[in-house]
Write a protein that binds this DNA or RNA. Sequence first.
DNA 1: GTTTTTGCAAACAATTTGCAGGGAT
DNA 2: ATCCCTGCAAATTGTTTGCAAAAAC
Lengths: 144, 144
Amino acid sequence: MEKIKQLLRSSNFKLTPQREVVLEVLLENEEGHLSADDVYMLVKKKVPEIGLATVYRTLELLSELNIIQKLYFGENVARYEFRSDSDDHHHHHLECINCGKVEEIDEDWLGIIEEKVEKQYDFKVIDHRLTFQGICSRCKTKDN
Amino acid sequence: MEKIKQLLRSSNFKLTPQREVVLEVLLENEEGHLSADDVYMLVKKKVPEIGLATVYRTLELLSELNIIQKLYFGENVARYEFRSDSDDHHHHHLECINCGKVEEIDEDWLGIIEEKVEKQYDFKVIDHRLTFQGICSRCKTKDN
DNA sequence: GTTTTTGCAAACAATTTGCAGGGAT
DNA sequence: ATCCCTGCAAATTGTTTGCAAAAAC
């Protein structure tokens, strides 16, 4: 948290209460895959006079600073999550097509595959995104 | 193409000229990752009086029949591509963050990984989506 | 005191929906 | 004749922008 504030300051952005609250909400829901609107709702509980546009602008800003990243799952709604600290990216998603829940898993699986991509396709890999769609354990047992 | 028409008929949907043209366009641009609007533009050249809503409805229909599938790359615009015939899904994307081009690659890499997911996370995998972001070979040589 | 940032409302873009007319069976 | 499908326009949804006032440094 402190280093994020540091980063903001050093990039000549001002540390406003609104930005702090957005960060706070993101930290409190780290596994949440929140949409801009989700963040807005949560932030509004703490600072009711905040505007939706400010939330969007803050999320945009944090994305540009590479603090968070914007993802799309099955819908056309952007969701945001913290970018992992390390520059290797071993972090994937399990998306339940029944209940819509998105779970995170953290495994180092794609290292060899990335190498193959770089060699076979002459493609410089910077990041990747891996999502599995299926039925989560809870929905499997509920059997609906 | 014929089997698709068959499938439509057997699901009690009518094979209208509009639907045929949409399919035609999709087939002609199989590697294109077209958005609804792209399809609309292309279809309009053949059948100028077609409506955008019809295109959306047709794409929706084809998605439900599992003929095509709806994907989101970095933006909030849905793009559509044919679903591979086989029920194994060995088909991934290379998305260039410089020129925006999306290339397809067809490799069987995730079989073992899917098994791990099923076991370790008790998650029934139905499909997956793997996209690599990076710099494509053309942009690498152009060096801009 | 400047320069950013905010909140509001209006603008925008992608997609969906309601509905009356048209077409296929 | 019925039921499905289309085209149009209006409605919705998610996101962005213009601008004057307010806040940060």
